[in-house]
């Protein structure tokens, strides 16, 4: 009950915070529009630092990954979820296993693989609202 009241009384403050948060979001939205043109050529000069935690080979040439990973992922999620196809080369969990930072174990967070590049390209990634960004994470769950 206490927590609820706390949330409730914090409302006016959070309201302001939300509004303020909305501003950069709106700006980000503006910023996204030119992003695809950037992404089109994977050879642009100043790239963000990309740390490859587990050296080896990606599921496709880096060039192609840079350009097409979003389509691969979006195509794959329908195959996996709707058709039930598993064990194909593209899986989001697969990306995370290889690309998670050795320090934090995550693909998100400052300087880590997915986030650093996306912050640079100003592309919002909402996948990790649901998908676990940490490699090898074991959920516990709590009794109801």
């Amino acid at each position: 009950m206490n927590k609820r009241e706390a949330i409730f009384s914090a409302f006016p403050l959070c309201l302001c915070v939300s509004v303020v948060r909305f501003v950069p979001f709106a700006l980000a939205l503006l910023a996204v529009s030119p992003a695809p043109t950037f992404a089109g050529d994977g050879t642009r000069t100043d790239k963000p630092v990309i740390e490859i935690a587990k050296p080896g080979k990606c599921i496709a040439p880096a060039e192609e990954m840079r350009r097409n990973h979003m389509d691969m992922l979006k195509h794959q999620r329908d195959r996996t979820l709707r058709l039930g196809i598993r064990g194909e080369p593209v899986t989001l969990n697969g990306c995370i296993e290889c690309h998670a930072s050795q320090k934090t174990g995550s693909v998100l967070g400052e300087g880590n693989f997915c986030q650093s590049c996306h912050a640079y390209a100003a592309v919002k990634l909402d996948c990790f609202e649901c998908h676990q960004p940490k490699a090898g994470f074991k959920a516990t769950g709590v009794k109801p």
């Binding site: 995370i96 676990q132 490699a135 090898g136 994470f137």
Partner: peptide, 9 residues
């Protein structure tokens, strides 16, 4: 705290 195999959000 999602399980990697069970995304929820």
């Amino acid at each position: 705290d999602q399980n990697p195999e069970v995304p929820r959000g």
